[in-house]
Design a protein around this nucleic acid. Structure first.
Lengths: 204, 204, 204, 204
DNA sequence: CATGAATGAGGATTCATTCAT
DNA sequence: AATGAATGAATCCTCATTCAT
């Protein structure tokens, strides 16, 4: 299965994110205090910048949120596409890779994913619209793999769309509780959630 | 299975919640704008009170959040206990009823549950501690049913604790997307999520 | 020396003041927190009354201050007049008694005197005017005794009015530091300040 | 008598104080209305600043009080030390200079001194502690001069510590009534209070 | 890019006071 | 006289944002 997306083989590994230091600092504060609980001054402080210095890089607080969320969703989609492209092309292969990519992303980009799923109500309409569009694209990948699997008999589900949402919700929720220094290794989390996901779709 | 809990048969039905009008108004604004995005003025406005009128009933914004969250978690636990008490006592019966109770609660008390799971970072340490204690009690009910089911062969799961968290996350996420006027009826949501939950724990 | 004032022989002894319990409670809070730093609610609390209960007795916060200050100054003047009436009528005798009365008053009615001298800037013009009138009457008693003493050679002072103010200031300042449980007994304080006062006016 | 203190010869003259315009404006309002009776808005208005403009310079209302009081006490101590250093070293010389310095300070820095002695109950514990420490240092200078004078026979007093407090109170009270446009010139006030002070300590 | 200064608008909270009961 | 409920105005302080340097 080939595609126009890059990163075909690298979707399992995560380097540093694509955020500028200022955005990374903002992310940390946003996650800890919430968007509205965060002041521009505390972002600037965390970034080691003066307030006007921060404004030199970003037009507004909302633009900072936008930049983080967009970069996050873009990276998540890139990993998902790469994972699917890297699969054997079967419904089961695509599903497994998509789930693994989602699980990995919500561990490796825990804060990013948490912010994106948690601050939707703080996004300006335009920003929110773009975010939802990207989230929906992600959702469609999963739904397609499940529907195809149901069609060819690999999966057994009476309501594939709901199953897709359930699997997706499950993966997203990982960002809520996973800690790198917690009791579970990354591989254990992947293994268990792949198991849960396969069960939800009734994989043989 | 009988118990000291009340509401033994009523756990499937939900009347109006136990919130005062002011708290109910606050809940609405909190859900729409977030705790920090909500001003006391807008709460008072939504409640049809003047600002000092609101303060007459509640000591602070945080106390309002506390009152809502505590009432919510208390009601959720009451329903869960009643559901379990109302079961046939088998692991499967207890699990089914607990899941159904959770699903119902996250539909019928969508805003309440959404707020409780979404504003943990806005809670003062003391409030947060009580919230977590109640959430943990809920989680233990589910875990016990699953573990018992695994022990007696009703369920098949290599990691019951993680399965309990997965089922719980799934139910909680319902509050994120369910709408009473959406495409799915309550009964459909219950049926499908019971199905997902049973699959996750490998019910026969 | 006889006069129309009562309490001729009792000016050395102080029973409970003439304040109602509510006013006494208010006095305590005013002294501790200052007039503007004190809320009606804290006065009501200290008095064991509800807020409307307090308003039943007193028209406003300012009326409370007025009642305390007026009662205080009236009592002080009564003691001063009684002390003078009780003297042998000589300049020296009147001066000694007046100073002793002042010193006693600023120890026995410490809070009252402290408030009266400290919250002049918080008094409404009308209240302030009455307060100043009473303070001036007090001052005149002292000045007259000193002037008479200078005239008859009992005292030696080139500027009796300034000496009167100095003696008065000295007595008033006692309310700032004197504590009943402090190192000095009342009699010691009286003895020493009588000494200082006599020296200031150059008593033989 | 030489010392490490500066201003050895200048202790009789007062230029503009060391306060910033904002602090000077605050001082005026504080003296007129009292600390608790003064709003940040009125300080900002008096200073020709917006409210946040004022906060740009000072962290809080209490910090403004602190800055004024600390500057005041520091200047008073500097003048007292300089006055003592400038004396002939005898108990009488030191006493005279200290009293003159105190009297001058309470005329030239009337508002400053009035605020410092009047708003002690409005100071936060930390601020209050520093203020008291500086006030005590001032008091010790006076006490030492008096004790030395009693020891060498220059003064006659049975209770030097109380005499020191009396002299000090007398000087402080000047800030309460002195007005530059009043009936007494500075020199007259100095002359008279030096006379009172010397009499209190029984100077020959 | 940093600094320092500035601001209108708004944040949560409390004020003195009133009134129906 | 007490209670509970209410309120307009004001409290201290912080917000996101801007501009001159």
């Amino acid at each position: 299965m080939t595609h126009e997306h890059c990163m075909t083989t690298d979707w399992r590994s995560f380097g540093p994110d694509m955020l500028t230091p200022a955005l990374r600092a903002a992310l940390g504060v946003f996650v800890r205090e919430g968007y509205h609980g965060t002041s521009i001054r505390s972002i600037a402080g965390a970034a080691g910048l003066s307030v006007p210095g921060l404004y030199h890089h970003h037009r507004s607080k909302q633009a900072i949120l936008d930049a983080i969320v967009t970069a996050t969703m873009t990276e998540m989609l890139a990993h998902s596409h790469a994972a699917e492209d890297d699969s054997d092309g079967t419904a089961r292969g695509r599903f497994d890779n998509l789930v693994e990519a989602l699980v990995r992303f919500h561990m490796e980009r825990r804060d990013h994913a948490f912010l994106a799923s948690t601050e939707m109500r703080s996004m300006d309409p335009q920003v929110l619209a773009r975010h939802i569009a990207q989230r929906d694209e992600q959702q469609r990948l999963l739904e397609a793999a499940i529907s195809d699997g149901v069609a060819d008999g690999s999966f057994v589900s009476a309501y594939p769309a709901d199953a897709a949402r359930a699997v997706s919700s499950l993966c997203v929720s990982i960002a809520t509780w996973y800690r790198p220094d917690g009791p579970l290794t990354e591989d254990e989390v992947i293994e268990r959630h792949l198991d849960f996901a396969r069960r939800i779709v009734g994989a043989a």
